Simulated scan of single mutants.
Amino acid sequence: MNRTDRLYALVEELRAVSPRPRSARWLATRFEVSTRTVERDIGALQAAGVPIWAEPGRTGGYALDRAHTLPPVNLTPIEAVAMALALHRLGGGPFAGAAGSALRKLLAVLPPPAAAEARRLADRVHLIGGGPATPVPAAVADAVSARRVLRLTYADRAGADSVREVEPLGYLGNRTHWYLLAWCRLRDGLRCFRTDRIVSVRALAEPVTRELRPGDLDIPHDRVRALTLA
């Protein structure tokens, strides 16, 4: 581990146990360096304004004031590329715009040397094709987030159009298509609308009050995975 990565790791180690302290000896063992190296690293972090203080005594050590520090945003270059690749897979989906802004924020907070290394590494990554082929109209994505009723013009498999008022409840996606899960007032039931068949869409002022329940999807449970933020 180089020194830059070790400095980031020291901060996150102290943040993880805050407000409890970690001794210089414990940190030296954890990062496989000498206690003198740990003391120099802590001094450099303190000089840079990181709120670390030393607690004296047998059970003392270094502690971090997590209330006055940002949450973890210091990624290594390879972690940044992994995040960029994951966000790229959202291309065309309902969160494509948010993914792009998140990636710009991620690159903005990387130290210049780490950002340069991340870009060099990204130049070695090559992709064939994109994510799901069908885009999600911005009005659909916005309505799902804002919980607003939509008026759709929708084309069926034969290409015949129909106008529907729907209550958007969520998304269903696979490698090929995105579907809008919505309560269709015309059919009085839950329906999946393939987003590339939405001819036009307009958000109405009426709010959505329904909730999607797991049992509402007539799909075997082992074939459906909910997105989790773990």
Rank of each mutant, 00 (worst) to 15 (best):
T4K: 10
T4C: 11
D5Q: 04
D5K: 00
R6Q: 13
R6E: 09
L7W: 00
Y8V: 08
Y8D: 07
Y8I: 03
A9K: 01
R15I: 00
R15W: 00
R15S: 01
P19F: 10
R20P: 09
R20Y: 15
R22P: 00
A24N: 06
A24R: 04
W26R: 14
L27I: 05
T29E: 14
R30V: 01
R30G: 00
E32M: 08
V33F: 02
V33W: 02
R36E: 09
V38L: 03
V38F: 01
R40S: 08
G43F: 01
G43T: 05
A44E: 04
L45Q: 07
G49N: 12
P51H: 09
I52L: 05
I52D: 00
W53E: 13
G57D: 13
R58K: 14
L64R: 03
D65E: 11
R66I: 10
R66A: 08
A67L: 12
L70Q: 12
V73W: 09
V73Q: 11
T76G: 12
A82F: 07
M83R: 04
A84L: 15
L85V: 12
L85P: 02
H88I: 03
G91E: 09
P94C: 05
A96C: 06
G97D: 15
A98H: 05
A98S: 03
A99E: 09
G100I: 02
G100F: 01
S101R: 15
L107Q: 11
A108M: 12
V109A: 08
P112C: 06
P112H: 05
P113M: 08
A114G: 13
A116K: 15
E117P: 04
E117D: 14
A118D: 03
L121W: 12
R124W: 07
V125Y: 14
V125A: 13
V125F: 14
H126D: 14
L127C: 06
A133I: 10
A138M: 05
A139W: 05
A139M: 13
A141C: 05
A141G: 06
T153Q: 10
A158L: 05
D161R: 14
V163G: 07
E165L: 08
E165W: 02
E165C: 05
V166R: 01
E167S: 03
L169S: 07
L172W: 04
G173T: 08
N174K: 07
Y179A: 00
L180R: 06
L181I: 13
A182L: 10
W183Y: 15
C184Y: 00
L190Q: 08
L190S: 13
R191N: 10
R191C: 09
C192W: 08
R194Q: 10
T195I: 01
T195E: 01
A205H: 10
P207T: 11
R210K: 15
G215R: 15
G215H: 15
D218E: 14
H221Q: 12
D222E: 11
R223V: 11
V224L: 11
R225F: 15
R225N: 14
L227D: 05
T228E: 12
T228I: 12
L229R: 05
A230Q: 08
A230C: 07
